[in-house]
Computed example of a mutant assay.
Amino acid sequence: MKKQNILKGVLFVGIGASIYGMLATFVKLAYHDGFTTSEVTTSQFVLGLAGLLILNIIQTLTSKKKLSLPSSKEVRMLMLAGTSLGGTSLFYYIVIP
């Protein structure tokens, strides 16, 4: 069971890295078409939020377990991770053009 979890984690990290790497291509194409950094970042946020909402709805409908609210420590950790990733993306997109 433990090997399966490690393999699943490696697979998820690899998929996430490849998706994050593909973003640079889409950003370059968007800049080539005349979009600004704020437009690209906003569209990434909106599409990501929509994707997470869809996944949340699917999980809520298919899960038999009652989901609990995150603790304040978990919320702070998520906010730190989100702002770090958002800042990285923003500065990365500013440098690409």
Rank of each mutant, 00 (worst) to 15 (best):
V40R: 00
Y31E: 08
Y20Q: 14
S68T: 08
V75C: 01
G16A: 15
A50M: 07
G34Q: 08
S38A: 15
V75I: 14
T88C: 11
N56A: 12
G21P: 07
F12W: 12
K2P: 02
L90V: 04
Y92G: 00
S89D: 02
T88Y: 13
P97I: 02
K2H: 09
L80A: 08
L78G: 05
F91W: 00
V13C: 15
L90I: 07
L53K: 05
A17C: 14
V27H: 11
L78W: 00
M1W: 14
I58L: 09
T88W: 14
I15C: 09
Q4S: 05
S72T: 13
L67A: 13
G14M: 15
L23K: 11
I96Q: 09
Q44L: 08
A81K: 03
F91T: 02
L85H: 01
G14C: 15
A24S: 15
Y20G: 14
L85I: 01
G82I: 02
T36I: 06
E39G: 11
A17W: 15
S63L: 08
I54A: 09
L47R: 03
F45D: 02
T83N: 01
F91S: 00
Y93T: 02
S72C: 07
E74M: 09
T60M: 12
S84E: 01
T88Q: 07
G87L: 00
R76Y: 10
V46M: 03
I57A: 10
L53R: 00
E39V: 00
A24C: 05
T60H: 04
F12T: 14
Q59F: 11
E74P: 00
K28M: 10
P97L: 02
P70W: 04
K2D: 07
N56W: 09
A24Y: 13
G87K: 02
T25R: 09
V40H: 03
L49Q: 05
A30K: 02
G16V: 14
L78K: 04
R76A: 09
N5L: 14
M77R: 10
Y92P: 02
I58Q: 00
L61E: 06
S89C: 02
V40G: 01
T42F: 15
K64I: 08
G82T: 08
S71M: 05
A50T: 04
S68E: 11
H32A: 15
L23V: 12
G87H: 04
T60C: 06
A50S: 08
E74L: 13
A81P: 04
